[in-house]
């Protein structure tokens, strides 16, 4: 899995609570082959998981991708799958992360749900 900037994500990165940002950043791009292989064509969502966490995305086809690679716009959904280790350089490894994926009927969490769960009690 690689995460990175897209136009839509970038244009909305200062209105992160908006519907547009939600649409942009909770998408997951795959090659046509992978898309078909996972049986995603009938409106299903896609569940991504690895040792760091799991979350649901809305799948989309990107012809520029090779098989075995998925691209997710940078943002809080993608970051659920990123580990904390910086390898001594301060920067986590945001790209080239191994993930498992499967089709799912579960819905995508919206941004408030995503953070509701970790909102801390009064300090």
């Amino acid at each position: 899995m690689i995460s990175g900037r897209t136009l839509a994500q970038g244009a909305n990165c200062e209105s992160k609570m908006s519907e547009d940002f939600f649409k942009a950043a909770s998408s997951c791009y795959l090659s046509k082959e992978d898309y078909d292989l996972l049986g995603l064509s009938d409106g299903k969502n896609i569940l991504l998981k690895n040792e760091f966490g799991k979350t649901v995305f809305s799948p989309r086809v990107d012809d520029g991708l090779r098989r075995g690679i998925v691209f997710i716009p940078m943002g809080p959904w993608a970051n659920i799958l990123i580990g904390p280790d910086t390898g001594g350089c301060g920067t986590p490894q945001f790209k080239g992360v191994e993930i498992d994926l499967e089709a799912t009927n579960s819905p995508i969490q919206d941004i408030r749900e995503l953070f509701g769960s970790i909102k801390r009690a009064e300090a």
């Binding site: 200062e14 760091f52 943002g75 809080p76 970051n79 986590p92 995503l114 953070f115 970790i118 801390r120």
Partner: peptide, 30 residues
């Protein structure tokens, strides 16, 4: 809150946070 790995955001959520920004964003929620 959006741009750090989730496990690190969970740590961030444990400490007091002051935010200076024109816009609301997920960090505001914390």
């Amino acid at each position: 809150a959006s741009n750090f790995p989730r496990t690190i955001v969970e740590e961030l959520a444990k400490i007091p946070i002051i935010q200076i920004d024109p816009y609301e964003n997920p960090t505001t929620l914390l």
